[in-house]
Amino acid sequence: MLHAHDIAAIVLTLQLAAVSTVILLILGTPLAWWLAHSHNRAKPLFEAIVALPLVLPPTVLGFYLLLAFAPDSPFGQLWLSATGHSLAFSFSALVIGSVLYSLPFVVQPLQASFEQLPVKLLEAASTLGADFKDRFFSIVLPLSRRSFITAASLGFAHTVGEFGIVLMIGGNIPGKTQVLSIALFDRVESLQFQQAHILAAGLVVFSLLLLTVVYRINKPTVLTAARQS
């Protein structure tokens, strides 16, 4: 049986993952488009910055975010003045940290898809008078639909499984910042192994099902490419 704190952690985790995924798609799409088509000499640097969470320990990023969110920091003071609440150890802090840490899981699939788009098709649409908005929704979005689903799924799943960064900037406050991964750690630390098994098994099943769906969605693309070659 799940305890009330466990259910609250699950709900909070799903809320965090949903909000973070929406923000990641909004911010990641134009960033991925720019990275896919830019010829700027600084492009490799920006790609490295985006990919940094893949190799950087989450506690490092969490530590610097914690310093930035502190009430005596410039950003922390600005947030406190605007909202009346401290940013550190809040749901908003978890969202910011999750967006930064999951950014490459959304940007990289989209960038790879945008790089493979047929340029002549976009140029033909432009010649016929279609502006960028029309080209994006009538050509780019349908052709990149699988990549958007993959990016959203990976961003959502990665947020659900985050531990180090959310612990650093959110702590372990039940009902406020205690997400599922923190609740699992808390159950193990307090020797509640039966509860820990339930939470851990749920995460394993969720991750496996989500990855299966992602691979299933991308399978037709692989088969089509193989036939064309």
Rank of each mutant, 00 (worst) to 15 (best):
M1S: 10
M1D: 02
L2P: 02
D6Y: 09
S20Y: 05
T21L: 06
V22I: 13
V22H: 01
I26S: 05
L27T: 11
A36M: 05
H39P: 12
H39A: 07
P44K: 07
P44T: 11
L45K: 04
L45W: 11
F46V: 15
F46Q: 06
F46G: 07
V50R: 03
V50M: 04
L54F: 07
L56V: 15
L56S: 11
P58T: 10
T59K: 01
V60S: 01
F63T: 03
L65H: 01
A68P: 02
F75L: 13
F75P: 04
G76S: 03
L78S: 05
L80A: 04
A82Q: 05
G84Q: 06
H85Q: 11
L87D: 00
A88F: 06
F89S: 01
S90V: 07
F91K: 06
A93M: 01
I96S: 02
G97N: 04
S102A: 14
P104E: 00
Q111G: 10
Q111A: 04
Q111C: 10
S113Y: 07
L117P: 00
P118S: 08
V119A: 13
V119R: 15
K120C: 03
L122P: 10
S126P: 09
G129S: 05
A130M: 08
A130C: 10
F132H: 13
D134P: 10
D134K: 13
D134I: 12
R135V: 09
V140K: 00
R145H: 15
R146G: 13
S147E: 06
A152N: 04
S153W: 03
T159S: 01
V160C: 00
G161F: 03
G161Y: 02
G170S: 06
I173G: 07
K176T: 15
K176M: 11
S181H: 07
I182F: 05
L184W: 03
E189D: 14
S190V: 13
L191I: 13
F193N: 10
Q194R: 14
A196S: 07
A196M: 12
H197G: 08
I198D: 02
A200W: 08
A200E: 04
L203M: 15
L209G: 15
L210T: 12
T212C: 15
I217E: 08
N218K: 14
K219Y: 15
R227F: 04
